[in-house]
Design a binder for these strands. Sequence first.
DNA 1: AGAATTAGTGTAAAAAGTACACTTTGTTAA
DNA 2: TTAACAAAGTGTACTTTTTACACTAATTCT
Lengths: 254, 254
Amino acid sequence: MENTSKTLDIKKATVKSFDNFFKSAFTVDNIIFGFDEADLKVLLIKRGEVPFENQWALPGNFVHQHENLDAAAGRVLDELTGLKKVYLEQVRTFGRVNRHPFGRVITVAYYSLIKISDYRLHASSIAQEVAWFSVEEVKELNLPFDHAEIFAACFNQLRLNIKRQPVGFELLPPKFTLTKLQHLYEAILEEKLDKRNFRKKILSMDLLIDLNELQAGVAHRPAKLFKFDPDRYKSLYEEEGFHFDISPTKNKKK
Amino acid sequence: MENTSKTLDIKKATVKSFDNFFKSAFTVDNIIFGFDEADLKVLLIKRGEVPFENQWALPGNFVHQHENLDAAAGRVLDELTGLKKVYLEQVRTFGRVNRHPFGRVITVAYYSLIKISDYRLHASSIAQEVAWFSVEEVKELNLPFDHAEIFAACFNQLRLNIKRQPVGFELLPPKFTLTKLQHLYEAILEEKLDKRNFRKKILSMDLLIDLNELQAGVAHRPAKLFKFDPDRYKSLYEEEGFHFDISPTKNKKK
DNA sequence: AGAATTAGTGTAAAAAGTACACTTTGTTAA
DNA sequence: TTAACAAAGTGTACTTTTTACACTAATTCT
């Protein structure tokens, strides 16, 4: 192969010009959702650094040179909560030229769904303090950078997603009651659902396993516990024509 | 304000450390869709540069320092077709560490919808040649980098989108027949639809204006021409509870 | 004038979505 | 022990949406 070195020369020359292209800092932001009894919550950090030091903001961090984007988003979560394997979804990339006061920073937004009972919060290099806020509180907070826009996009994406994918279970403990599940949907969709219609629909999908166990420690009739069956979902998903879909089950009372 | 300079010092120091973070080259790729009589087509370029010189690939380019992401995607399209105002949608960001052989390059994927009659193709700095390929051809082509994955994600996104947003009209000339519209949906959804059900559904949405004009130059009964009414759509969209939705209108013949 | 080609149209049956209220089962406190 | 409390659990009738399906109408071409 006598032209190998020639090819390498071309490559080297091109790599050089390639190196001359503008490069940008880039980050991931991770909107971490948890569900706590009745409320959908979001994890915010109190920033430990300028700009916007001491303000509540979305957790995020720079992406490392040899790190994939998903891994970076996972790392942000791990640093704050110690959780490693979680549901993670990329939402959109925000790159407005002046979105960061110190220079061009492009950020890839993710959301995560975690079981709120599992976590323990940590302060970290980027966060003086970490706390849960309800979705309503977050909306009213004046988040720095374009974080309000990022939050809105992620929440919206979650709402679309929960209707068409069985992702809600990521927010619940392994065993849950149908009422808890309904409350979760109501919190995310921000509307009341009809109890009987909701149960009819979710049970007819044949994705929940009745554990023949009752809720304990409540001062009223205990509810049955169910778990989600991911294998069953996978096999149904293979079938042509199966769609997870919680759209209607409406309730006239606004 | 005697502490201004102090603040600036802090900022300067922080900006300095900020500058030390790893920075990446980043690009946009733009999957340009057009609809040509019966087929959904995609615009590919023959690369004019290493790596993968002379191979067909998705059009893309580096994002400039002072350029927003959407603007960069628009510029790619403009360079290839001369079109400036088009429907553009961000899909997802691809940043696998080794997706580019010359170094870390993160790319934001977009798709565009254009009226195929409007364009004229240009070669450009990045493209020796530009040509339309049908979706099937693209799937069979062995696209370089992770372009096959990017294409699949964009096509999939378009399919989801066309069901729930009235974006199909971006691919058609201002005046079109119902049959053309149906063919467009069939091409994107990759399934046959029932003529009567399709018409019933689309007309019941009250988004099309009957132009009281007939198709010309066909060797059979001419069809009526319609146009899409974007203002009507906007006002319906404001109304609680209106959803554009072309889901079913199925046809048993597979 | 007849053949060819696509446009255009309605109805009935099935499936899905919606509204709605009372009984059951357990705990707690009198 | 019993009554009050609280949430669990359950079925049906009505409405709306979806689906399947086949013939007639309008135009051009030969």
